[in-house]
Amino acid sequence: MEPVFAIAFGVMVAVAAYLLMSRNVLRIVLGLLVLGNAANLSIFTAGRLESRVPPLVPAGEAALAGGANPLPQALILTAIVISFALVAFTVVLFESAHRRLGTLDADAMREAEPLPQATTKKSRKVEESA
């Protein structure tokens, strides 16, 4: 099973990389989301996919025999919560930036680092479109 999961992980990272390189900030958010899930998948795969038995110690016994590895699941649970919060924040930030800056094009967002006077080709284009 591991090779399938490893390939799925690779595909997800590739998709995330493609989305993250987009100029549209909405796609960037989706890229972050996919990358976060790829990370979770990598933790899950790294914990080995040996057993489907829930990692619960049966009543009356002291140790667990042949259960699934519980640690990756605990780690993923933590990571999911964190990435959920961060993506929620990111969406709100991008939305308010969209409202204030009036654009979704990352290249047109030059508020913090303005170009030195309108000399380059890109800034002229930005001005024309504005």
């Binding site: 990272v13 993250l20 900030v25 960037i28 972050l32 990358l35 976060g36 790829a38 990370a39 990598s42 933790i43 795969t45 790294a46 914990g47 640690l71 990756p72 780690l75 990571a79 990435s83 961060l86 924040f89 990111t90 930030l93 991008f94 308010s96 930036a97 204030r100 800056l101 990352a106 967002m109 030059r110 508020e111 913090a112």
Partner: peptide, 30 residues
């Protein structure tokens, strides 16, 4: 406006870096 613009770049690049960190931790655990 400047802070929102800066925030987008700061948040995106840092999130990519920490996710990369998480993936590395997963491999290390593996």
């Amino acid at each position: 406006r400047a802070q929102l613009d800066a925030g987008i770049k700061y948040v995106t690049l840092n999130l990519i870096a920490t996710t990369f960190f998480l993936i590395t931790v997963a491999f290390l655990y593996g």
